[in-house]
Amino acid sequence: MDIGDSVIAVSGLRRRYGPEGDGGFEAVRGVSFTVGRGEVFALLGTNGAGKTSTVELLEGLERPSGGEARILGHDPYAERAAVRPRIGVMLQEGGFPSDLTVVETVRMWAGCTTGARPTEEALGMVGLTDRGSVRIKQLSGGERRRLDLALALLGRPEVLFLDEPTTGLDPEARHSTWELVRRLREEGTTVLLTTHYLEEAEALADRLAIMRRGEIVASGAPGEVIGAYPARIRFAMPVGWFVGDLPPLAELGVEGHEESDGRIELRTRTLQRTLTGLLIWAREKDIELEGLDARTASLEEAFLAIAGGGEPGAETGSGVSVGAGAGARRGK
C-alpha cells in the first residue's frame, strides 16, 4: 500500500515515559503500519504490550518521542485542529461528569463537535434512547461504554479510534457493537481498534497487528496470521496400533507429531491432504480413529504463541510471516 493513500500511516513510532535510561520506560518501540480508507485494523496484545500508548499518539494526545504518525495526511499532535473534526475517539478509560444526564452529556459534546448528529440519532445508534434522562453515575459500566461510543460517532468521523470498545459489555451489547462497526465500515469509515478479544479481531478486522513489549511482532489479514500456524489433527489408535503403522508421515504433509497416553497429534499446513490420506488409510485397514478432531489454527493459538510467550528478546513463532507490505517486524 502506498503510504500517501493511507488514512493512518505510522512509521518508527516511539513513546517513552520518564527520563532516558533506566529511570524511564519505552512503551512503544518503533511501530510501523498503515491503514487504508474503509479498513478495520485491529491492534492486539496482552496488557502492557503498548496498544493504548500507541493509539494515544495517533489520537494526538501526546507527542511521540520518536518516529512519525500521520492521520489523513496530518500530524495528529501538531495539526490537531485539522485532524480532530474528522476523527472520532473512544478512550480505553474516559469520563463524563457524573452529575450530568446522558442527554446533557451528548449536548455538551455536540456543542464541541462540527456537524454533530442529532442527540436522538446518536443515542439510537448505541441503544441508549431510553436512558436519556439518567445521570451518568447511575449508568452501568456497559452503558457508559456505549455512551462513549455514541460520542465518538457524533461527528460522523472519517476515522474512528476505538480502544477496547467492548470491554465490560454483555454478549448481546458486544454483538450489536460489532454490527455497528461493520455498518460504519460499509459506509466507508476507517476504524482502528484495540482489543483483548481475539474473536472480536477475527470477526471485525480486515487486517491486524499483534504487539508485544512495544513492538509489532506479526501483522496481516487474520487468515495470513493464522495461516502461518499449522493445523492439528488429534485421534487415538485402537489397541495394538502404533504411530509407526501409519503411512509415511512426510508423504501426508505432516510437519510434526506427538504421542501421549495413546492419543496422537499431527501438525500440518496441508490439512485436507493429510486428513484425506489418514482417513483412506483407516478405511483400508478398517480401524476406528477414536475421538478424531481436526482443526485449523485459531487466532488464539497464533496469539498465544506470538504475544504471550518467549523469553525477553526471543522471537517466537518463527513461521509467522509479515502481511504483505503492511507493518514492520522488528527483530532485536
Partner: peptide, 16 residues
C-alpha cells in the same frame, strides 16, 4: 473533572 477523566476525554475532541 480531572479525576473523573472528563478533561482527558474532552482533550480528544475539537476543543483546544
Amino acid at each position: 473533572r480531572r479525576e473523573e477523566l472528563v478533561l482527558k476525554r474532552l482533550r480528544t475532541g475539537e476543543a483546544g
